[in-house]
């Protein structure tokens, strides 16, 4: 267990170092964005004098590392700064509400695509080279190849425009909560499911095929155990490990990928907030959103690594330790 703990500490250290480097990259890239923040704020009617004063007041004329240092020390203290367009409003007060919405959307998609993909992946693996396998594999490939904005438009056309079962736009009516409007989650979550289903079901199928052809499964069959018992008690537990890795690795991608889905459906999450921030050159807000996505990505990757170790005895009991 000591070895496992030292692995955990090592991974956390590596995560912090990665985040520090990435924060510098994010800050540099945002700096390179074309456009003038002061001009964006004051608009067409700004005079050179007012632009100069605003740049001075916001510290936009300070050297790069001064501004980076100011930003990163603020982030470490939990202060993400103020939005350019909302003087006196901490970014965190806007961000967490949106992050809550996005997390909820991501988890709704997660709840749909994980069981569906695993079950269908298992069926495809067990029924290798049969009709069920072909149909599931083809569907997985097709949905994986479709970008979210294409599958989203198809879903809107069918379920919102033609059948009128679900709303076209996933906004939360003013005065109500997301909890009161769960139907707005269905189409965005299905769009995400379409993409994720391909990855997960194909991985589940492959690992299931490998496990089902392994010696210990053959031995179980020779012992005369029922096929269902072999699949669920012997094969699935091992075949799930690579799938969990893929799911974990994709959680970070899923969160970043919400930008497209949220923009398409007008969902009030972090993705649409980031898009708005980019459009309006709201630099502190862009930096906060991108950094948060990076943190989620890095955390999900690290968690997956640790979970893999937790679930896989060959890694957990390295060198015969318990």
């Amino acid at each position: 267990m000591n070895s496992y703990l030292s692995t955990v500490f090592s991974k956390v250290g590596s995560l912090l170092a990665t985040l520090l480097v990435i924060s510098l990259i994010i800050f540099s890239l945002v700096e390179l964005m074309p456009g003038d923040v002061a001009q964006m704020i004051l608009g067409q009617s700004a005079t050179e004098e007012s632009l100069r004063e605003l740049r001075q007041a916001r510290g936009l004329n300070d050297p790069f590392f001064t501004r980076y240092g100011r930003w990163i020390t603020g982030v470490l203290r939990g202060d993400l700064g103020d939005s350019i367009y909302m003087q006196g409003v901490p970014i965190s007060s806007i961000l967490w509400r949106k992050v809550g919405h996005s997390l909820f959307l991501a988890l709704t998609a997660f709840i749909i695509f994980v069981p569906v993909s695993i079950v269908l992946g298992v069926i495809a693996g067990v029924k290798e080279k049969k009709a069920a396998d072909s149909i599931i594999s083809f569907t997985g490939l097709a949905t994986m190849a479709l970008p979210e904005f294409v599958s989203g438009v198809i879903l809107i056309s069918i379920f919102a425009v033609r059948l009128k079962w679900l709303p076209i736009v996933s906004v939360i009516p003013i005065g109500q909560t997301l909890f009161q409007n769960l139907d707005i989650l269905i189409l965005p979550a299905l769009s995400i499911t379409f993409v994720m289903f391909g990855y997960v079901s194909r991985m589940q199928r492959s690992s299931m095929i490998i496990v089902m052809n392994s010696d210990y499964i053959k031995a179980a069959r020779l012992k005369g155990l029922p096929e269902r018992y072999i699949i669920f008690r012997h094969a699935l537990r091992n075949a799930l490990l690579p799938t969990i890795t893929i799911i974990g690795m994709n959680m970070g991608w899923l969160f970043g990928g919400l930008i497209v889905v949220e923009t398409l459906f007008g969902f009030p999450g972090m993705g649409s907030l980031l898009m708005t921030a980019i459009k309006t050159r709201d630099v502190p807000l862009i930096e906060a959103c991108v950094l948060l996505i990076t943190v989620i990505f890095a955390l999900s990757t690290m968690t997956t690594d640790l979970l893999y170790g937790y679930l896989n005895p060959r890694i957990r009991f390295k060198g015969g330790q318990r």
């Binding site: 509400r97 988890l107 997660f110 709840i111 005065g175 109500q176 909560t177 979970l307 937790y310």
Partner: peptide, 24 residues
Amino acid sequence: RICIVLSILIALSGTLLFAAGETE
């Protein structure tokens, strides 16, 4: 162990479901 992990994830999503429901 797999069941434990999946249960934690589902519980977490349930918590967020209520957390996202601001009172207005």
